[in-house]
Amino acid sequence: MSKRSIIPGFRLSIGISVFYLSILVLIPLSIIFIKSFELSLAQFWDTIINPRVLASYRISFVTAFCAAIINTVFGLIVAWVLVRYQFPGKKIIDALVDIPFALPTAVAGIALTALYAKNGWIGSLLEPLGIKVAYSPLGIIVALTFIGIPFVVRTVQPVIEDLEKEMEEAAVMLGAYRLRTFLRVVLPTLYPALLTGFTLAFARGIGEYGSVVFISGNMPLVTEISPLLIMTKLEQYDYAGATAIAAVMLIVSFLLLLLINLLQWSMNRRMTANS
């Protein structure tokens, strides 16, 4: 540690990096908290416990949670299939998983709305069943599911690739059936990756704006998400209100980020301990 490295450029690179991050990320984000402290506690509290604000938090969290659950289940299946099986079109499916990373959210929003609206390809099939997706909370879940697809798949995939078949074989030798082997031997090793993927998808879902505003219909108390409410407050020049809502969301995001980091840290430790 104390021995200085002979590789050049430490001071320069760390100096510029920290400066850049401070100016662009740290100082701007701290403004939210500075501004919230300017509000009196009563002011802050009144903004937060407003029924419309509370409803928006509830909608944002519940829909993001549902979408993250859906992504955990299907993400595990997609990742498993992509690693373990051979089938035609596998490479294309694998590449398509990254589309939600690369596709602008506004494009995803209008495309999903067109699909799930009453006269859309999928919406028209669901209409006779009495299921309304677009302009309902269900639509928000669909949009957030789309946005979150890569997170679970891409965190679980490498872990499945690294699984040692010997462990599964040993379980079989000891007389376990395939499902039992999967549930008792394979799945537990995937838990940290699944939880990380879930948390990433959940965190992303809470903050998502672009894809949701088109499909949700934006009705207060029903389909109005928190980021949209911040937007509305800003348009009404209610900066204090917007800041208060944002501060609560930021704290939640930070806690989730902390959780992700802890998970990754324990995953890394486990992996280095194994090797």
């Binding site: 701007p28 928190s226 911040i230 800003l234 917007a242 800041t243 944002a246 930070f254």
Partner: peptide, 12 residues
């Protein structure tokens, strides 16, 4: 981790 809307808000 930050919502894009909040990212915009901080600069406003």
């Amino acid at each position: 981790a930050v919502s894009p809307v909040i990212a915009g808000l901080v600069f406003v």
